[in-house]
Simulated assay, not measured.
Amino acid sequence: MAADFFHLDTAPGHRLYAPAFLEHGTRRPHITGVTAQPSREWVVRQARNAAAGLGVRIESLRFLLRDRDGKYGPAFDAVFQAEDMEVLLSAPRAPRMDAHCERVTGTLRREALDHVLVMNEAHA
Rank of each mutant, 00 (worst) to 15 (best):
G106T: 09
V43F: 07
R109S: 10
G55C: 06
L65G: 11
G70Q: 12
A82G: 10
E111T: 12
E59V: 11
D4R: 02
M119L: 15
R68G: 11
F21T: 01
R109W: 06
E111P: 03
D77F: 11
P12E: 08
E121P: 07
L108P: 01
L16Q: 02
E111A: 10
L8I: 15
A112N: 05
A52K: 05
E86S: 12
E86A: 14
L89G: 03
C101E: 08
L65V: 13
R66L: 09
L64N: 02
P38Y: 08
L113E: 03
R40M: 10
F63N: 11
L88G: 04
D4G: 05
H100G: 07
A2L: 07
F80D: 02
R96V: 08
M1G: 05
L22K: 01
Q46V: 11
N120W: 08
A112R: 13
D4Y: 00
L88N: 04
R15L: 09
P12T: 06
F5E: 15
L61H: 07
P38E: 06
S39R: 11
L89N: 04
D98H: 09
L54A: 09
F21I: 04
D98F: 05
R48A: 06
V118D: 00
D69A: 13
P38N: 09
L22S: 01
A51G: 09
V43S: 06
L16C: 08
V79L: 04
E41A: 14
Y17K: 09
R109N: 11
A99S: 11
I58G: 05
R68P: 01
V43M: 13
A2W: 02
A2F: 09
A124L: 06
L117S: 13
A122V: 12
A78R: 10
H24L: 15
A99E: 07
D4C: 02
R62T: 14
G70D: 14
A78P: 05
R45L: 14
L65S: 12
P12H: 09
V104A: 04
A50Q: 03
I58D: 00
F76E: 03
N49A: 15
D67N: 10
R103L: 12
L117V: 13
H24E: 15
F76A: 01
G55Y: 08
A91C: 01
H7V: 12
S39M: 06
F63V: 15
E83P: 03
F80N: 00
E111C: 07
E41H: 11
I31P: 00
P29V: 03
G55A: 07
L88S: 01
A124D: 05
F6N: 02
R96M: 10
L64M: 13
P29W: 00
A36Y: 04
L54C: 10
R62F: 13
P12L: 05
A2T: 13
G13P: 10
